[in-house]
Write a protein that binds this DNA or RNA. Structure first.
Lengths: 228, 228
DNA sequence: AATCCTAATATTGTCAACAATAAAGTGTTT
DNA sequence: AAACACTTTATTGTTGACAATATTAGGATT
């Protein structure tokens, strides 16, 4: 029932890993829930082999935790882990912004300005509704990261950490954040990059992420408080 | 022939993953070589199942690259990847040093001073021979990282990135680096931490890693040059 | 002799069955 | 009634066999 969009991969295990990742990030498989191998295998119509491989991959991504002879569990988001993760993001994406400022080609800069215009138009047209940029090529942060030119940094942020970050974004951020403020900050960062001001670009990116982190923290504390 | 020290894990696949990691880091399995599942399975006396699981884990650690229907290959160290990795290390371990400066308990600080004294004594006794601190509790960098108190940062650096870093250290660093200079730098970093000077601790750690990176770069370029 | 095509071989991907461990259920004892 | 021990059940870990893909070897063609 779940594979509405099934992207044919070279191998089943890749396919399953992708689908499981999406299911977890979107909350289709709830946080903290147990991953039953027989159940999911039946659900996706594969045997346990490739499914296990997919689970091992998700463990590497930090989306599930595994215990020997017991099984896998979807991670449970919590404030401390979020703060820890976003503190790392500050350092890493700040670094990415600095690198981007010294190496981003002009056409890519223009392309990013166009993207921000598109975001702006979206906000104007849809009464400040958040633009859904989950992981795609319209994600400002991913574009900056790729522009860093540091292959290891790109892999780490886009392939290993971003699934979890997307989870935090989706589950709590949107309702409280101010999209227009975020857009202004994106624009300021891009300006700094366009002017090749690496230090400023890093500073602004760090501040931007730090601010998002604080908003998320409030939202999560609030969520805990109201659930008591 | 390889499992001289076999650490009994809860599961075979963990065990194999550990042994494979060590074998690759130490160079027992050469860089760029192909990982043959049937061959290794026979060698370690297990079936292909757990061995495959181990390979998937190593892929997550960045120690091997896998291609569908073709197989896995041990990574090939190269200068660009090293520079990219160490640039990330600068940002992350710099952050760790700063955090450590604001939270490290006194007894841990004293314990680290004792460790550096031990390193000093080792250098005095063994005519500047490099102290082998591969991954153990005697590794200064690992101790700082753990002292950061940021769980995500600890996991990332110690479980996901450190295998590759150890590879770089082992394969090229030792012959060219000056152990006494490194020790002095470690001491300066620890002094800053002990004085709760976070900014300084970060600066010194970044400079320390940057310097190691430059030495490694020279060593690797030299290695390439002499092999032509 | 070199290149292309085809057949044989080997390796990876997947599956289903078995073994080992943990979880759930049942009955017994205090 | 609660706690413990034991049995039953279900899940994970592991294995060996089969299917699909890639690599190699050999022969035909230019």
């Amino acid at each position: 029932m779940s594979n509405l969009i099934s992207i044919k991969s070279a191998t089943l295990s890749e396919d399953i890993a992708q689908q499981l990742t999406n299911a977890i990030v979107q909350g289709d498989i709830p946080q903290g829930s147990k991953i039953s191998e027989p159940e999911l295998a039946k659900q996706y119509g594969v045997s346990r082999g490739p499914l296990r491989e997919a689970i091992v991959k998700l463990e590497g991504l930090g989306l599930v935790t595994r215990t020997a002879n017991v099984g896998a569990r979807v991670i449970q988001l919590n404030t401390q882990d979020m703060l820890d993760t976003f503190a790392m993001r500050e350092a890493l994406e700040g670094m990415a912004a600095r690198l981007a400022a010294s190496s981003m080609p002009t056409d890519e800069i223009n392309s990013l300005y166009a993207l921000l215009d598109k975001h702006q138009a979206h906000l104007d047209a849809n009464q400040d509704e958040h633009y859904v940029q989950q992981g795609g090529n319209d994600d400002f942060h991913l574009r900056i990261i790729h522009a860093s030119g540091n292959g290891k940094l790109i892999r780490l942020l886009t392939e290993e950490l971003y699934a979890v970050i997307r989870m935090y974004r989706r589950h709590t951020a949107d309702q409280r954040s101010d999209p227009r403020q975020a857009l202004r900050e994106h624009k300021a960062i891009l300006d700094a990059i366009a002017n090749h001001e690496g230090d400023l670009a890093e500073l602004l990116m760090r501040r931007h992420i730090s601010r998002a982190s604080k908003l998320l923290e409030q939202a999560m504390q609030h969520a805990v408080a109201t659930s008591l």
